[in-house]
Amino acid sequence: MHLCHHTTLLPVPERQDYWREVIGSTYFDMDLRFTERQGFYGQLWNWDVAPFGISFLSSSPTQYQRLRQHINPHGDNHFLITIPERQEVHFSQERRSVRCRPGSFILERSDKPYEFEYQNDNSLWVLRVPDSLLRARLRLPERHLFSEFDRSQGLGAVFFDFFRSITHQVAYLDDRQTEPLLRQLIELFALAVEGDQRAIASEDSGLCQVHQQRVEQYIREHIRDSNLNPEQVAAACGISTRYLHKLFQGEEFSVSQWIREIRLQGAVADIRRSGTGRTLADIAYKWGFSDQAHFCRSFKSRFGITPKEARQPGG
């Protein structure tokens, strides 16, 4: 679904309240503060491709505050990938901050209070990604929250070029065509941030980080093995099962939960992709589910609908 919002035709006194409503409906609840009391302008184009959102906004200087009262602990959380076009933006959360200049991009999380602002007229792209979907590919997105990533070269440029190609064509594609492209885009994003030398050389990248990377790689390479379990992963990576569980302590998913999440995210992508020519049973087995009934129960528990319902238009 494509929507366009703009303040041009509104009386000046009504523009800021209107912009608050637009931002809340496009992203989530926030408080907004405006530098320019007179003459504020804003326009926003939004494409919703469930479960993703792509938006492009231009506005006068604005500060966006995500406060604790805005956050529903039982609601759906998202990450935002922000790509400024004209001026730098500033993101701060939990006493840490990052500035992002045109030619770069940053990652933000929505489930904790933050401030986001730009002090001059600006334009920026924003990609909204469900928390669970990004974590299925990038197990610890928090490692990359306060880094500015270069979009002009290397994998960052590949990610941005693919993103722009999608935005140029999204108006001509239906959701079933666009959704798998956006999943590929998340794969490119993960490769870009994982390959950043600062992440590789950070203080978190000691022996523990090495083991984490080996574990993640092994799980992804063997995700279609229905017998994949923590004991097998630990043995293949040369660590104890106890240490493997310790690597996942404090994270959203345990080892087994993360394996299941990767499988379910892969399965739902295949089910919703048009023209796969596969039965639901084939897809279940492809992603490591040896029991069809267990697959259906897990799928409905995770997504709220059955695999058959997900295959229907609008599922």
Results as ranks from 00 to 15, higher is better:
288 G>T: 07
161 D>L: 12
40 F>S: 00
167 T>N: 07
265 Q>D: 07
122 N>Y: 01
105 F>V: 04
24 G>I: 04
290 S>T: 10
296 C>N: 09
61 P>C: 09
219 I>H: 03
246 K>Y: 10
30 M>R: 09
158 V>C: 08
54 I>H: 01
271 I>L: 08
15 R>Q: 03
189 F>G: 02
285 Y>V: 08
124 L>R: 03
120 N>Y: 09
156 G>Y: 05
90 H>V: 10
284 A>C: 08
40 F>N: 00
285 Y>R: 15
184 Q>N: 13
166 I>V: 14
46 N>I: 08
14 E>H: 12
177 Q>F: 05
143 R>T: 09
44 L>K: 01
156 G>W: 04
281 A>V: 15
146 F>E: 05
267 A>Y: 03
143 R>Y: 09
290 S>W: 08
206 G>Q: 01
311 R>M: 15
3 L>I: 11
1 M>W: 02
262 I>V: 14
33 R>H: 11
167 T>S: 10
235 A>K: 14
271 I>P: 00
258 W>L: 14
77 N>E: 08
12 V>L: 02
291 D>M: 06
39 G>F: 02
213 Q>W: 05
121 D>S: 08
129 V>E: 01
131 D>S: 14
90 H>R: 14
238 G>S: 06
148 E>L: 07
91 F>T: 03
186 I>S: 02
172 Y>F: 13
56 F>N: 02
246 K>A: 10
157 A>L: 12
80 L>T: 03
120 N>Q: 15
62 T>M: 03
90 H>L: 12
163 F>K: 02
124 L>I: 05
225 D>H: 13
93 Q>G: 07
269 A>L: 09
221 E>M: 13
140 L>I: 15
159 F>H: 04
177 Q>A: 13
172 Y>P: 00
286 K>W: 08
140 L>Y: 09
46 N>H: 15
85 E>C: 08
56 F>H: 05
193 V>G: 01
184 Q>V: 11
311 R>E: 12
19 W>F: 10
50 A>N: 07
256 S>R: 14
94 E>V: 08
80 L>W: 08
66 R>D: 01
308 K>D: 11
72 N>I: 07
186 I>V: 15
157 A>I: 04
313 P>N: 10
249 Q>W: 09
276 T>Y: 04
24 G>W: 04
63 Q>T: 15
216 E>W: 07
117 E>H: 12
297 R>T: 14
48 D>W: 04
297 R>D: 09
46 N>Q: 15
198 R>Y: 03
139 R>W: 13
224 R>M: 12
117 E>V: 08
171 A>R: 11
107 L>Y: 03
282 D>E: 13
117 E>F: 10
147 S>M: 14
181 L>W: 03
194 E>W: 04
175 D>F: 05
178 T>L: 15
112 K>Q: 15
141 P>E: 12
189 F>P: 00
